[in-house]
Simulated assay, not measured.
Amino acid sequence: MLFGKIGAPEIILILVVVILLFGAKKLPDMARSLGKSARILKSEAKAMKSEGQQTAPAEPANEPAQDQAAPRTIQAFPGDVAGARPVSEPTDSTKR
């Protein structure tokens, strides 16, 4: 068992090696970018889940369908308006 007995001294040694490899100045930037990535992933997963739960109402046969929906935007974190960018929706070629 290689990893069976990892204690406090081993964890401290691993942290020291990581700090020596990456440098103390780069670690906060790496943690910040990891946090932004996690927030983006969380918001996209929530958006996909909410889109899956929405059901389209039945459309009357005599009115044309409205395909012009507002474009979605991806935000780095909730309330971010400076970094938001529009995303084009994939088209479904199976509909006829």
Results as ranks from 00 to 15, higher is better:
K49S: 07
V18C: 00
F22L: 15
Q53N: 01
E44T: 14
G52K: 14
K46P: 05
T55E: 12
S37I: 03
R32Y: 04
A45K: 10
M30W: 12
P28M: 06
E44K: 13
G35H: 02
G52D: 04
M30A: 07
G52H: 05
P57Y: 01
G23V: 00
K49C: 03
I40P: 00
K46W: 10
M30N: 10
M30K: 02
L34D: 05
L13F: 01
M30G: 14
D29E: 08
L20P: 03
P57N: 11
L41F: 08
Q54T: 01
L13V: 03
A58S: 15
L21S: 07
V18T: 13
V17A: 14
F22P: 03
V18F: 06
E59H: 10
K25Q: 02
L21Q: 12
A58T: 14
G35R: 02
S50C: 02
P57G: 00
E51P: 05
L15N: 06
P28Y: 02
E44S: 12
L20G: 07
K49T: 12
K49R: 14
L21Y: 04
S37N: 05
Q54H: 01
I14C: 09
R32G: 02
P28Q: 09
K36H: 12
I40F: 10
L20T: 08
K36W: 07
K42W: 13
G35P: 00
T55V: 15
D29R: 04
P60Q: 06
I19P: 01
L41R: 02
R39Q: 04
A56N: 12
Q53L: 05
L13S: 13
L41G: 05
E59T: 09
K26R: 11
L13E: 15
K25N: 01
A24T: 15
R32Q: 12
L21M: 13
S33D: 08
F22T: 10
I40M: 10
L27D: 02
G35S: 08
I14L: 11
A58E: 06
G23H: 00
K46C: 06
A45Y: 01
P57H: 07
G23S: 00
L27R: 00
K49Y: 05
E44M: 15
I19H: 09
L41N: 12
A31L: 13
A31G: 04
S50L: 02
A24R: 15
I19Y: 03
A47I: 14
S43G: 05
Q54F: 03
A31T: 05
A31S: 10
V16F: 09
K26Q: 08
Q53V: 15
P28K: 14
K49H: 13
S50M: 15
L13D: 11
G52P: 00
I14M: 10
L41K: 09
A45E: 08
E51L: 03
S43W: 08
S37H: 11
V17F: 06
Q54V: 10
L15R: 06
I14S: 15
T55A: 14
K42N: 07
A45W: 01
K25Y: 00
G35K: 08
